[in-house]
Write a protein that binds this DNA or RNA. Structure first.
Lengths: 165, 165
DNA sequence: ACACAAACGCAGCGATCACTGCGTTTTTAG
DNA sequence: CTAAAAACGCAGTGATCGCTGCGTTTGTGT
Protein backbone atom coordinates (compact mmCIF):
# COMPACT_ATOMS: atom_id res chain seq x y z
CA UNK A 1 0.00 0.00 0.00
CA UNK A 2 2.74 2.41 0.96
CA UNK A 3 4.59 1.70 -2.25
CA UNK A 4 1.41 2.24 -4.27
CA UNK A 5 0.98 5.69 -2.73
CA UNK A 6 4.61 6.61 -3.34
CA UNK A 7 4.49 5.44 -6.93
CA UNK A 8 1.28 7.34 -7.63
CA UNK A 9 2.50 10.55 -6.02
CA UNK A 10 5.64 10.29 -8.12
CA UNK A 11 3.92 9.30 -11.37
CA UNK A 12 1.04 11.64 -11.39
CA UNK A 13 2.27 15.05 -10.46
CA UNK A 14 -0.58 17.49 -10.57
CA UNK A 15 -3.13 14.72 -10.64
CA UNK A 16 -5.34 14.21 -7.69
CA UNK A 17 -4.48 11.29 -5.48
CA UNK A 18 -7.61 9.39 -4.52
CA UNK A 19 -8.38 6.23 -2.63
CA UNK A 20 -9.68 4.21 -5.61
CA UNK A 21 -6.51 5.09 -7.56
CA UNK A 22 -4.24 4.04 -4.70
CA UNK A 23 -6.23 0.85 -4.18
CA UNK A 24 -5.98 -0.08 -7.84
CA UNK A 25 -2.23 0.47 -7.82
CA UNK A 26 -1.83 -1.60 -4.65
CA UNK A 27 -3.99 -4.37 -6.07
CA UNK A 28 -6.61 -4.23 -3.36
CA UNK A 29 -10.20 -3.06 -3.29
CA UNK A 30 -11.01 0.54 -2.51
CA UNK A 31 -13.24 -0.55 0.34
CA UNK A 32 -10.25 -2.03 2.10
CA UNK A 33 -8.44 1.29 1.95
CA UNK A 34 -11.51 3.30 3.02
CA UNK A 35 -12.02 1.04 6.00
CA UNK A 36 -8.40 1.06 7.09
CA UNK A 37 -7.32 4.63 6.47
CA UNK A 38 -10.47 6.62 5.79
CA UNK A 39 -9.03 9.61 3.98
CA UNK A 40 -6.19 10.37 1.59
CA UNK A 41 -4.76 12.73 4.21
CA UNK A 42 -4.52 9.98 6.82
CA UNK A 43 -3.04 7.61 4.27
CA UNK A 44 -0.40 10.11 3.16
CA UNK A 45 0.57 10.94 6.73
CA UNK A 46 0.98 7.25 7.47
CA UNK A 47 3.03 6.60 4.35
CA UNK A 48 5.24 9.63 4.89
CA UNK A 49 5.90 8.78 8.54
CA UNK A 50 7.03 5.31 7.70
CA UNK A 51 8.94 6.50 4.65
CA UNK A 52 11.14 8.64 6.87
CA UNK A 53 11.70 6.16 9.63
CA UNK A 54 12.68 3.11 7.63
CA UNK A 55 16.28 3.23 6.65
CA UNK A 56 18.08 6.27 8.01
CA UNK A 57 20.92 5.58 10.39
CA UNK A 58 21.97 8.29 12.79
CA UNK A 59 25.62 8.91 11.87
CA UNK A 60 28.38 8.56 14.47
CA UNK A 61 31.64 9.92 13.11
CA UNK A 62 33.12 10.81 16.50
CA UNK A 63 32.63 14.56 16.15
CA UNK A 64 29.61 16.82 16.00
CA UNK A 65 30.82 18.40 12.76
CA UNK A 66 31.30 15.01 11.16
CA UNK A 67 27.89 13.82 12.35
CA UNK A 68 26.09 16.92 11.12
CA UNK A 69 27.87 16.89 7.78
CA UNK A 70 26.92 13.29 7.28
CA UNK A 71 23.35 13.87 8.48
CA UNK A 72 22.91 16.85 6.15
CA UNK A 73 24.40 14.94 3.23
CA UNK A 74 22.03 11.98 3.79
CA UNK A 75 18.97 14.18 4.22
CA UNK A 76 19.87 16.19 1.11
CA UNK A 77 20.26 13.01 -0.88
CA UNK A 78 16.91 11.75 0.39
CA UNK A 79 15.08 14.98 -0.34
CA UNK A 80 16.61 15.13 -3.83
CA UNK A 81 14.86 11.91 -4.74
CA UNK A 82 11.92 13.03 -6.90
CA UNK A 83 9.69 10.37 -5.36
CA UNK A 84 10.43 11.52 -1.83
CA UNK A 85 9.91 15.13 -2.81
CA UNK A 86 6.57 14.39 -4.46
CA UNK A 87 5.45 12.52 -1.36
CA UNK A 88 6.44 15.39 0.93
CA UNK A 89 4.62 17.94 -1.21
CA UNK A 90 1.50 15.78 -1.43
CA UNK A 91 1.52 15.28 2.33
CA UNK A 92 1.98 19.00 3.01
CA UNK A 93 -0.85 19.70 0.61
CA UNK A 94 -3.30 17.77 2.74
CA UNK A 95 -3.22 20.79 5.03
CA UNK A 96 -3.00 20.85 8.78
CA UNK A 97 -0.08 20.03 11.00
CA UNK A 98 -0.46 16.25 10.84
CA UNK A 99 1.02 15.93 7.37
CA UNK A 100 3.74 18.44 8.15
CA UNK A 101 4.70 16.55 11.30
CA UNK A 102 4.89 13.31 9.35
CA UNK A 103 7.41 14.92 6.99
CA UNK A 104 9.83 16.20 9.59
CA UNK A 105 9.17 14.35 12.84
CA UNK A 106 11.62 11.53 12.46
CA UNK A 107 14.31 13.71 10.96
CA UNK A 108 14.05 16.10 13.87
CA UNK A 109 14.38 13.25 16.34
CA UNK A 110 17.53 12.08 14.59
CA UNK A 111 18.98 15.57 14.80
CA UNK A 112 18.17 15.69 18.50
CA UNK A 113 19.91 12.33 19.01
CA UNK A 114 23.06 13.71 17.37
CA UNK A 115 23.05 16.75 19.67
CA UNK A 116 22.38 14.57 22.72
CA UNK A 117 25.37 12.38 21.91
CA UNK A 118 27.61 15.43 21.65
CA UNK A 119 26.44 16.60 25.06
CA UNK A 120 27.14 13.11 26.38
CA UNK A 121 30.73 13.61 25.15
CA UNK A 122 30.91 16.64 27.40
CA UNK A 123 30.67 19.13 24.54
CA UNK A 124 28.37 22.13 24.22
CA UNK A 125 26.49 21.85 20.92
CA UNK A 126 24.02 24.46 19.60
CA UNK A 127 20.42 24.05 20.66
CA UNK A 128 18.02 21.91 18.69
CA UNK A 129 16.15 25.06 17.68
CA UNK A 130 19.30 26.70 16.36
CA UNK A 131 20.38 23.56 14.53
CA UNK A 132 16.95 23.14 13.02
CA UNK A 133 16.98 26.72 11.77
CA UNK A 134 20.48 26.42 10.35
CA UNK A 135 20.29 22.91 8.84
CA UNK A 136 16.84 21.34 8.58
CA UNK A 137 15.11 24.51 7.46
CA UNK A 138 17.41 25.29 4.50
CA UNK A 139 17.37 21.64 3.43
CA UNK A 140 13.62 21.34 3.38
CA UNK A 141 13.09 24.84 1.99
CA UNK A 142 15.45 24.35 -0.93
CA UNK A 143 14.06 20.90 -1.71
CA UNK A 144 10.37 21.79 -1.48
CA UNK A 145 10.23 25.44 -2.52
CA UNK A 146 12.94 25.71 -5.17
CA UNK A 147 14.56 23.56 -7.82
CA UNK A 148 18.07 24.50 -6.74
CA UNK A 149 20.38 21.53 -6.18
CA UNK A 150 21.27 20.37 -2.67
CA UNK A 151 25.00 19.87 -3.32
CA UNK A 152 27.50 18.41 -0.82
CA UNK A 153 29.44 21.71 -0.90
CA UNK A 154 26.31 23.56 0.05
CA UNK A 155 25.41 21.20 2.87
CA UNK A 156 28.95 21.44 4.26
CA UNK A 157 28.70 25.23 4.10
CA UNK A 158 25.50 25.06 6.14
CA UNK A 159 27.30 23.08 8.84
CA UNK A 160 30.22 25.54 8.77
CA UNK A 161 27.90 28.47 9.31
CA UNK A 162 26.37 26.68 12.29
CA UNK A 163 29.71 25.57 13.81
CA UNK A 164 32.28 28.28 13.12
CA UNK A 165 35.85 27.56 14.17
CA UNK B 1 -12.09 34.57 -7.57
CA UNK B 2 -8.85 34.89 -5.65
CA UNK B 3 -10.71 35.61 -2.45
CA UNK B 4 -12.98 32.60 -3.03
CA UNK B 5 -9.96 30.33 -3.31
CA UNK B 6 -8.35 31.78 -0.20
CA UNK B 7 -11.54 31.46 1.81
CA UNK B 8 -12.07 27.87 0.74
CA UNK B 9 -8.49 26.81 1.45
CA UNK B 10 -8.83 28.36 4.89
CA UNK B 11 -12.30 27.01 5.64
CA UNK B 12 -11.98 23.50 4.45
CA UNK B 13 -8.74 22.12 5.71
CA UNK B 14 -8.35 18.56 4.56
CA UNK B 15 -11.20 18.91 2.11
CA UNK B 16 -10.43 18.75 -1.54
CA UNK B 17 -10.45 22.03 -3.38
CA UNK B 18 -12.25 21.68 -6.70
CA UNK B 19 -13.24 24.01 -9.46
CA UNK B 20 -17.03 23.76 -8.96
CA UNK B 21 -16.55 24.58 -5.26
CA UNK B 22 -14.38 27.61 -6.00
CA UNK B 23 -16.81 28.78 -8.66
CA UNK B 24 -19.74 28.51 -6.29
CA UNK B 25 -17.89 30.50 -3.63
CA UNK B 26 -16.91 33.17 -6.15
CA UNK B 27 -20.43 33.38 -7.48
CA UNK B 28 -19.55 32.44 -11.04
CA UNK B 29 -20.19 29.38 -13.14
CA UNK B 30 -17.75 26.51 -13.07
CA UNK B 31 -17.39 26.74 -16.85
CA UNK B 32 -15.91 30.18 -16.46
CA UNK B 33 -13.23 28.87 -14.14
CA UNK B 34 -12.50 25.82 -16.30
CA UNK B 35 -12.06 27.97 -19.36
CA UNK B 36 -9.88 30.56 -17.68
CA UNK B 37 -7.66 28.48 -15.43
CA UNK B 38 -8.14 24.86 -16.46
CA UNK B 39 -6.92 23.11 -13.34
CA UNK B 40 -6.93 23.67 -9.60
CA UNK B 41 -3.12 23.68 -9.67
CA UNK B 42 -3.02 26.57 -12.15
CA UNK B 43 -5.63 28.44 -10.17
CA UNK B 44 -3.77 28.00 -6.89
CA UNK B 45 -0.47 29.09 -8.40
CA UNK B 46 -2.14 32.19 -9.78
CA UNK B 47 -3.85 33.04 -6.51
CA UNK B 48 -0.71 32.46 -4.45
CA UNK B 49 1.45 34.57 -6.76
CA UNK B 50 -0.86 37.51 -6.52
CA UNK B 51 -1.42 36.97 -2.82
CA UNK B 52 2.27 37.52 -2.20
CA UNK B 53 2.76 40.46 -4.48
CA UNK B 54 -0.15 42.60 -3.44
CA UNK B 55 0.65 44.50 -0.33
CA UNK B 56 4.17 43.93 0.91
CA UNK B 57 6.41 46.97 0.95
CA UNK B 58 10.17 46.46 0.85
CA UNK B 59 11.33 48.10 4.07
CA UNK B 60 13.89 50.89 4.02
CA UNK B 61 15.14 51.61 7.54
CA UNK B 62 18.54 52.95 6.48
CA UNK B 63 20.50 49.88 7.57
CA UNK B 64 20.68 46.30 6.35
CA UNK B 65 20.00 44.98 9.84
CA UNK B 66 16.95 47.17 10.22
CA UNK B 67 15.66 46.22 6.77
CA UNK B 68 16.12 42.51 7.35
CA UNK B 69 14.60 42.62 10.82
CA UNK B 70 11.58 44.41 9.41
CA UNK B 71 11.36 42.09 6.42
CA UNK B 72 11.57 38.99 8.61
CA UNK B 73 8.98 40.41 11.01
CA UNK B 74 6.54 41.15 8.16
CA UNK B 75 7.05 37.77 6.50
CA UNK B 76 6.62 35.97 9.83
CA UNK B 77 3.41 37.86 10.46
CA UNK B 78 2.16 37.02 6.99
CA UNK B 79 3.02 33.33 7.25
CA UNK B 80 1.40 33.14 10.70
CA UNK B 81 -1.93 34.05 9.19
CA UNK B 82 -3.82 30.72 9.05
CA UNK B 83 -5.36 31.67 5.72
CA UNK B 84 -1.98 32.38 4.15
CA UNK B 85 -0.54 29.19 5.58
CA UNK B 86 -3.41 27.10 4.24
CA UNK B 87 -2.97 28.66 0.82
CA UNK B 88 0.76 27.94 0.79
CA UNK B 89 0.24 24.32 1.82
CA UNK B 90 -2.49 23.80 -0.75
CA UNK B 91 -0.30 25.30 -3.45
CA UNK B 92 2.70 23.18 -2.49
CA UNK B 93 0.44 20.16 -2.52
CA UNK B 94 -0.32 20.61 -6.18
CA UNK B 95 3.15 19.20 -6.78
CA UNK B 96 5.76 20.45 -9.17
CA UNK B 97 7.86 23.55 -8.96
CA UNK B 98 5.23 25.95 -10.26
CA UNK B 99 3.27 26.05 -7.04
CA UNK B 100 6.46 26.24 -4.97
CA UNK B 101 7.74 29.16 -7.06
CA UNK B 102 4.44 30.96 -6.62
CA UNK B 103 4.86 30.73 -2.83
CA UNK B 104 8.34 32.17 -2.60
CA UNK B 105 9.11 34.03 -5.83
CA UNK B 106 7.98 37.48 -4.82
CA UNK B 107 9.41 37.21 -1.34
CA UNK B 108 12.77 36.23 -2.74
CA UNK B 109 12.74 39.22 -5.09
CA UNK B 110 12.04 41.52 -2.17
CA UNK B 111 14.97 40.06 -0.27
CA UNK B 112 17.18 40.59 -3.29
CA UNK B 113 16.05 44.22 -3.52
CA UNK B 114 17.07 44.76 0.12
CA UNK B 115 20.53 43.33 -0.53
CA UNK B 116 20.91 45.35 -3.73
CA UNK B 117 20.12 48.54 -1.86
CA UNK B 118 22.77 47.77 0.73
CA UNK B 119 25.33 47.22 -2.01
CA UNK B 120 24.26 50.55 -3.51
CA UNK B 121 25.15 52.11 -0.15
CA UNK B 122 28.67 50.79 -0.63
CA UNK B 123 28.24 48.00 1.92
CA UNK B 124 29.05 44.31 1.53
CA UNK B 125 25.96 42.29 2.45
CA UNK B 126 25.81 38.48 2.52
CA UNK B 127 24.83 36.76 -0.71
CA UNK B 128 21.21 36.14 -1.62
CA UNK B 129 21.83 32.41 -1.23
CA UNK B 130 23.23 32.85 2.27
CA UNK B 131 20.44 35.20 3.29
CA UNK B 132 17.82 32.85 1.89
CA UNK B 133 19.29 29.94 3.87
CA UNK B 134 19.50 31.98 7.07
CA UNK B 135 16.20 33.86 6.90
CA UNK B 136 13.69 32.69 4.30
CA UNK B 137 14.29 28.99 4.89
CA UNK B 138 13.70 29.01 8.67
CA UNK B 139 10.65 31.24 8.26
CA UNK B 140 8.97 29.04 5.70
CA UNK B 141 10.08 25.81 7.38
CA UNK B 142 8.74 26.75 10.77
CA UNK B 143 5.48 28.07 9.34
CA UNK B 144 4.76 25.16 6.99
CA UNK B 145 6.34 22.16 8.72
CA UNK B 146 5.81 22.89 12.41
CA UNK B 147 3.31 24.62 14.65
CA UNK B 148 5.98 26.55 16.54
CA UNK B 149 5.36 30.29 16.78
CA UNK B 150 7.29 32.76 14.63
CA UNK B 151 7.98 35.29 17.38
CA UNK B 152 9.68 38.70 16.91
CA UNK B 153 12.50 37.57 19.26
CA UNK B 154 13.09 34.56 17.09
CA UNK B 155 13.10 36.52 13.83
CA UNK B 156 15.56 39.02 15.34
CA UNK B 157 17.77 36.15 16.44
CA UNK B 158 17.78 34.84 12.86
CA UNK B 159 19.01 38.22 11.61
CA UNK B 160 21.65 38.32 14.35
CA UNK B 161 23.00 34.95 13.33
CA UNK B 162 23.24 36.16 9.74
CA UNK B 163 24.85 39.53 10.58
CA UNK B 164 27.10 39.07 13.61
CA UNK B 165 28.75 42.16 15.03
C1' DA C 1 -10.89 -28.78 14.16
C1' DC C 2 -13.93 -25.16 15.00
C1' DA C 3 -15.83 -20.71 16.14
C1' DC C 4 -15.28 -16.13 15.89
C1' DA C 5 -13.02 -11.84 14.68
C1' DA C 6 -10.78 -9.30 11.31
C1' DA C 7 -10.03 -8.17 6.82
C1' DC C 8 -11.47 -8.15 2.34
C1' DG C 9 -14.35 -7.78 -2.01
C1' DC C 10 -18.78 -7.07 -4.61
C1' DA C 11 -22.37 -4.34 -5.95
C1' DG C 12 -24.62 -0.42 -5.83
C1' DC C 13 -26.00 4.41 -4.56
C1' DG C 14 -26.07 9.49 -4.50
C1' DA C 15 -23.14 13.16 -5.23
C1' DT C 16 -19.76 15.53 -7.58
C1' DC C 17 -16.24 16.36 -10.94
C1' DA C 18 -14.30 17.54 -15.31
C1' DC C 19 -15.55 18.88 -19.38
C1' DT C 20 -17.99 20.49 -23.80
C1' DG C 21 -21.53 22.34 -27.37
C1' DC C 22 -24.07 26.10 -27.92
C1' DG C 23 -26.59 30.25 -26.80
C1' DT C 24 -26.41 34.83 -24.25
C1' DT C 25 -24.25 38.82 -22.32
C1' DT C 26 -20.59 41.99 -21.84
C1' DT C 27 -16.67 44.34 -23.49
C1' DT C 28 -13.91 46.38 -26.93
C1' DA C 29 -12.52 48.46 -31.26
C1' DG C 30 -13.57 51.16 -35.16
C1' DC D 1 -23.65 53.08 -33.00
C1' DT D 2 -22.37 48.63 -34.61
C1' DA D 3 -19.83 44.46 -35.28
C1' DA D 4 -16.88 41.29 -33.46
C1' DA D 5 -14.38 39.26 -29.78
C1' DA D 6 -14.29 37.79 -25.19
C1' DA D 7 -16.39 36.13 -21.32
C1' DC D 8 -19.99 33.91 -19.30
C1' DG D 9 -23.90 30.59 -18.19
C1' DC D 10 -26.98 26.54 -19.23
C1' DA D 11 -27.59 21.95 -19.93
C1' DG D 12 -25.91 17.77 -20.36
C1' DT D 13 -22.49 13.76 -20.52
C1' DG D 14 -19.42 10.13 -18.92
C1' DA D 15 -16.42 9.14 -15.34
C1' DT D 16 -15.18 8.88 -10.74
C1' DC D 17 -15.50 9.41 -5.83
C1' DG D 18 -16.86 8.39 -1.20
C1' DC D 19 -19.27 5.40 1.08
C1' DT D 20 -22.18 1.37 2.81
C1' DG D 21 -24.79 -3.27 3.33
C1' DC D 22 -23.80 -7.68 2.98
C1' DG D 23 -21.40 -11.85 1.67
C1' DT D 24 -16.74 -14.26 1.45
C1' DT D 25 -12.11 -15.22 2.79
C1' DT D 26 -8.37 -15.20 5.94
C1' DG D 27 -6.37 -15.18 10.41
C1' DT D 28 -6.47 -16.17 15.29
C1' DG D 29 -7.45 -18.27 19.67
C1' DT D 30 -8.96 -22.21 22.16
Amino acid sequence: MHRAVQELVADEANDSLTIPIVAARAGVHATTVYRRWGTVADLLADVTSSRFSGDIVVPDTGSLRGDLERYAYDLAKDLCDPDTLALVRATIGTGGEQGAAACRGERQRQLEAILERDRARGENPPTLERTTDALLAPLYYRAVFTDDPLTPDWTRALVSHLLPD
